[in-house]
Design a protein around this nucleic acid. Structure first.
Ligand code: FES
Ligand code: FES
Lengths: 152, 152
DNA sequence: TATTACTCTACTAATTCGATAGACTAAGTA
DNA sequence: TACTTAGTCTATCGAATTAGTAGAGTAATA
């Protein structure tokens, strides 16, 4: 399970990705529409900014925007910023390899599986961009409307 | 990242799986060989027993053994006992579906990706049994010895 | 200059985590 | 029977993490 920070961050970023190319979006708008505590979201957006995913503008008409194309921001990158390595166990981490406490890591059968698991996860999260997620969501919304329209 | 409990549990279980069919293994032996704090390991083995993975025998010559064949214990099952659902976000959990706080879960593009990620993880962890891990480890050990022999 | 909106730091309450302690029970064995 | 071995159970604890709040400060705009 990822933390609330991570969940909120991905939702906020999706919100911005959906408004790519439009005017900056205020913290308040994201907070209200995505149902995220405002002061908590402030911190999260700051982290997102430091990580280079978003830019901000102060003053009236200000707010947040994506710092780069949604096609260039993968879910994996964002998750790593808030949750650390994708690996379930540190000995399986590619980005930040670490000791796991195993007495003989060089011949550990478990480690092989942890590595497989981390690759499976990375395969999904690193290949999915926020542009993909925006697209999926609009498909879902279209389908949902269709069902709704039909039921009228 | 999974907890120490989870890591220790899988190591302990692998230790028992490697000694399947042999005499019971004492907590102390597992503790020493796997470098796990003894009193902490006691608790973990108790949990493992309650979950039906191992059996125990008291008194001299007693200790722990697998409750069923290592081919019937998947890594996924064990991880779930200690870490809960494999899903990164509760809305993606198959075993214990829950709210994730999203305002519109029914049309959420993120959720689709979280579900994909959970499936990718489950695919690896649920299809890998402790028998597989024992086998992998002996392959690794054989390879390691071969290299060592060669370097003499 | 007043307002809007982001920025930064500190703080806190609650929970979880990793571990330790110790008393207790059951099973062998001399 | 008494002793020893080895698992069982519950309580406790300090440290770390988490989720969230508070508030003063800064930059941009009208
Ligand atoms: S080396 Fe990490 S689990 Fe064994
Ligand atoms: S429904 Fe769970 S992330 Fe949107």
């Amino acid at each position: 399970m990822i933390s609330s920070r991570g969940k909120y961050a991905t939702r906020a970023l999706l919100h911005l990705a959906q408004r790519e190319g439009q005017a900056p979006v205020s913290i308040q708008e994201i907070s209200e529409r995505q149902v995220i505590p405002l002061k908590f979201l402030e911190q999260i957006l700051l982290t997102l900014k430091q990580a280079g995913f978003v830019t901000s503008r102060k003053g009236p008409g200000g707010g947040y925007q994506l710092a780069k194309s949604a096609t260039k921001i993968s879910l994996g990158e964002v998750v790593r910023v808030f949750e650390g390595p994708l690996a379930l166990v540190s000995c399986a981490s590619v980005t930040r390899f670490g000791e796991c406490g195993c007495p003989h890591p060089e011949v550990c059968g478990l480690r092989e599986v942890w590595i497989e698991a981390r690759h499976a996860l990375a395969q999904v999260l690193d290949l999915t961009t926020f542009a993909d997620i925006v697209q999926r969501q609009s498909h879902l919304e279209a389908g949902h409307h269709a069902i709704h329209d039909f039921s009228i």
